[in-house]
Design a protein around this nucleic acid. Structure first.
Lengths: 208, 208
DNA sequence: GTCTATACTACGATAGAC
DNA sequence: GTCTATCGTAGTATAGAC
């Protein structure tokens, strides 16, 4: 590719539009305008609106994958052997994810993904395969060490609940602020939420 | 109103379109077609696309409000006095909500709400005020009885986590199925998820 | 490889018949 | 109160100049 940055600029603008508005409501005109290129360049580089959408899905997998990469690598390089270590690893993975859910950057990514979750298309498949599956299976493996006496299916359900505790910080953002009686979720409130989440998760990860 | 059912038919079709596609992508033409009326009837009854959108928000508040009504009434009629009773009430409220999240009807409602949560408009305000706020504050009050020694702010954060554990069953539906290695979430899988959720919630609601 | 120009379809709103 | 007809705008895709 002679101008790799141009494709990236289009994808960035497209991700913003697709995330905020969804596939149908997003307009290639606006995306072209926002990225400062002609509309026909989208056709040239991505074959059309659909192709651009899939390129956005790949981009999401890369970006959110990078969020988890350092921790995932550390866990793989030095796999936990004791329940205590596994619990600490799972907590770190969850806190890392929750921190991303609280960050502004996760907004468009999450809206994109939540939409895809309801009726998954090829776009979801790519995101799941390249980003979600590795993280979720790592979490499941950590829980197998942390909670050896529990049924595998129970552990998988627990992974889902833990993910939910983090994901609500993004998808229920307006409710979170109102329930805590704050105008918006500032850094201080975010730290409090993370600490509280950590406490609850620790409770759930401690074998009775 | 001489034909109250016609407005309802339009709202039903609109909710489906707005929920699935969002405000911009939904088309009043399609809504009119789906409900079997002329497009101009929407203008007549709701003043335009925006008015119809707000009518859908009110409808959501009514429908999801009705889901919680029986339990809310029972709790108000006979307020729990012991931590055990309060815990049971909170668990019942959560399970009721989670069951709705697993039901197909919640799909469009939730998509509508999640979109509104990111950048709340008048529509979110109506849903929050008439439906969410009463339920969330009831839950908070129950937790105040169940966990008297904990800080009020901690209890509110816990309410958020509990909601997250239920809400992920809807917004993360595709992931839930994949993590549990099932093709779709049938009645049996749903029961298992609810039982597992109940167990985790009980753990979190038991004072250490 | 990027542009301009254009073909074709669909959008929301409104006017006016009945 | 519901319809049909129409206006002005904006959507995607494509053809062809450079």
């Amino acid at each position: 590719m002679t101008t790799p940055e141009l494709s990236q600029r289009i994808i960035a603008a497209a991700l913003d539009q697709f995330g905020r508005l969804g596939f149908d409501a997003a307009s290639t005109r606006d995306i072209a305008r926002a990225s400062g290129v002609a509309m026909s360049s989208i056709t040239y580089h991505f074959g059309g609106k659909q192709g651009l959408y899939l390129a956005c899905a790949d981009q999401i997998a890369v970006v959110i994958g990078a969020v988890h990469r350092p921790l995932m690598d550390a866990i793989e390089a030095d796999p936990p052997r004791t329940p205590q270590d596994a619990r600490a690893g799972a907590l770190a993975l969850l806190e890392n994810f929750a921190r991303f859910m609280l960050a502004p950057e996760s907004e468009i990514h999450c809206q994109f993904i939540v939409r895809e979750q309801q009726h998954p298309t090829e776009a979801f498949e790519r995101i799941y395969e390249h980003m979600m599956s590795p993280v979720l299976e790592t979490a499941t493996a950590l829980l197998a060490i942390a909670l050896p006496h529990r049924d595998e299916r129970e552990r998988r359900a627990l992974v889902i609940s833990l993910v939910g505790m983090a994901i609500v910080l993004r998808v229920g953002r307006a409710c979170v602020a109102r329930v805590l009686r704050v105008d918006d979720i500032d850094a201080q409130t975010a730290d409090f939420l993370l600490a509280s989440l950590r406490r609850s998760a620790l409770t759930l990860l401690t074998e009775d």
